[in-house]
Design a binder for these strands. Structure first.
Lengths: 239, 239
DNA sequence: GAGTGGTCTAGACCACACT
DNA sequence: GTGTGGTCTAGACCACTCG
């Protein structure tokens, strides 16, 4: 049996956790400055930051860029197995969603895309980047790749609100099968800036590969979520 | 447009990343000591550790207790939607699995369990803790809760290799529906020690609630994975 | 312009792992 | 016993945010 020595950063964790539990700090409230916390608990900034990072790992608080530390609001429940759209399920959960298009362009498949989408090198693809969030807080960034061969003219469709709605309604194509790939990673500088996080911030990366009824890949989608903003729910049936 | 200043911990990241790419460091190899890296790159331990933590967040390296830093081996692919057992899918992926029972006991449902399993407070439940890993490296710890009301005498069954196999074969009960709940969190001291990780280590928590054909909850299962050891794959069909 | 978070230096002590 | 990782102190500078 190991004997735990008392760790000073733990007092930061305990102190702030209590503030949150007691309601002195509410969701989206800003925490006191690191220097102020350090002074109050008679420790140094390095130690205080260690404690803050532990609370961050637990998802109780989050960082916004250089703006400071905040209490994490309720997570977004996301079920990638349901045919429901971001704007809708966020609203349903009582939060106000937003969606911002960052980039839309025609490209050709490079080696990575060709392998991931199981298509030929050089096949024309429409690339779409967008940022989405709730209550003015960005929660995930995604890159979407659509095959022009399967969805002719898709570049000129209004894709901002929902790609899958366009595919369903304008191409009479159903998503028959979806392969999900989920991994915990960290944000690169570009992704971090968009998500108002420091580079290296822990993220959840969701890759989604969608097929139509004929087994063709129609869409490839890579999402990077702030780890603190997401709760994944998946319902599986044996039928 | 912001101008990036060059960060010193980044040189640690770049240096070690190259060592791994070039093959100077191979999966499961131990990295040089923090002091040695610091000296080699003419920086201090704090900065070196900052770089190491970034590589850890990216999943390229991992920590084992106080033993040091190691290069992350290939992740385990886990598809919670498939009816396949840990011992089997790890073997299939060319790794050697192990499973260790930590605890088995009869308890009654407390408030948390009652709510999670949608059962009455005080209902008898069999609790099982176990630790699983591959190639001698622990990868996840799980708590399993089984309803004695639905699975009479389950306490005395051999549950170590696979609970679901016992349920299927000995009770002729099929898993009809499974609700998954996935969240990124961190390990508490107990979990961390079992997983040979420092307390607070980033983890993936998977809660699984399984129902039989009649809609009764038969099993509740909470898994804590080392974040660096797991790649989730889920296949969804519209059928 | 003041204050903050992000980064860094140059030390130190302790408990634990390894030999 | 030696060396390592885990933790901590007491400073410092810079770039950025905010008022």
């Amino acid at each position: 049996m190991t004997i735990r020595k008392s760790v000073s950063s733990a007092s930061v964790v305990t102190y702030l956790r209590n503030c949150i539990k007691k309601g002195d700090l509410n969701p989206d409230d800003k925490l006191p400055s690191e220097r102020e916390i350090s002074e109050r608990l008679k420790t140094t900034r390095v130690t205080t930051r260690e404690g803050l990072k532990q609370l961050e790992a637990q998802g109780l608080i989050y960082r916004s860029n250089r703006r400071g530390w905040f209490v994490t609001p309720e997570r977004i429940n996301y079920d990638p197995s349901r045919a429901i759209y971001f704007m809708d399920y966020v609203s349903e959960q009582g939060q106000i969603p937003f969606s911002r298009e960052i980039l839309k362009r025609k490209i050709v498949a490079d080696a990575f895309l060709a392998e991931a989408m199981k298509i030929d090198l050089g096949e024309p693809v429409v690339e779409l980047h967008r940022l989405r969030g709730a209550n003015n807080r960005p929660v995930y960034f995604e890159r979407i790749y659509l095959r022009e061969a399967i969805l002719p003219g898709v570049f000129d469709k209004p894709l901002e609100r929902s790609v899958s709605r366009v595919v369903r309604d304008e191409y009479q194509t159903d998503y028959d099968k979806v392969d999900l790939n989920i991994i915990v990673g960290s944000l690169d500088e570009y992704e971090a800036e968009l998500l108002q996080a420091p580079a290296g911030y822990t993220s959840i990366e969701i890759q989604r590969l969608s097929y139509d009824q004929d087994g063709h890949v129609i869409e490839f989608d890579v999402e990077h979520w702030r780890h603190d903003a997401l709760q994944l729910k998946v319902n599986l049936s044996a039928h």
